[in-house]
Each structure stands twice: as C-alpha cells, then as structure tokens.
Amino acid sequence: MLLIHCPYCDETLPEPEFAYAGEAHIARPADPMALTDEEWRDFLFIRSNPRGTHYERWRHVHGCGRFFNAIRDTVSDKFAMTYRAGEPRPNLDALKEAAE
C-alpha cells in the first residue's frame, strides 16, 4: 500500500484514500470538432505508457476530493513528487539536480 502526498491537504496518507485517474497533462482540445480523426484518436486513446517516469493524475477521492498530478516510476512504483492540477509539468531532471 502506497503512501501518497496530497498537495492540497499537504499530508501523506494511505493509498485507499486515493483513486488513480490516468495520464496527466492531456488537455481536452479547445475545439474538438476542428480536429482530424487521427488527432482526436490520439487524444482519446494514445498514451505514453512509459517504463519509468510517468506523469499521472490522482484524486484524493476520500479526502478533499481534489484531482492532482504526480510523478511516479512505473517500475518501482515510487512517487517522485505530487503537485496541484494546472501547474506546469515539472522538469524531473532539474529537480534531481537541484536536490543534489
């Protein structure tokens, strides 16, 4: 069972309070009708599915109810960080460098 930090509650809490919500930073197109079939397909179905660093969404569903973003390693399952929805995608390498 993972421990997850909610960036809104600013608390680290057990996984059952949270729900996974798919890959992060996939914004709904402003005008879907202007998209080609291929563009719309990519928005709907095509995901990065990486082995390693994954930017993803979680919801603190049994807590504050907020959706937020997280960086998690899909191999080790470890969270690198969580951050609020709407914040730009953090540069993980820069963060690592800063930490070092």
Binding site: R28, R57, R59, F67, A85
Partner: peptide, 13 residues
Amino acid sequence: LNMMEDYLQTEWP
C-alpha cells in the same frame, strides 16, 4: 459525480 468533478476541476476550472 467523479466525472463531473474531473471536468470541473481540471478542464474548466
């Protein structure tokens, strides 16, 4: 409700 919250919070805040 989850779906509504999702759109409200993340697409149309």
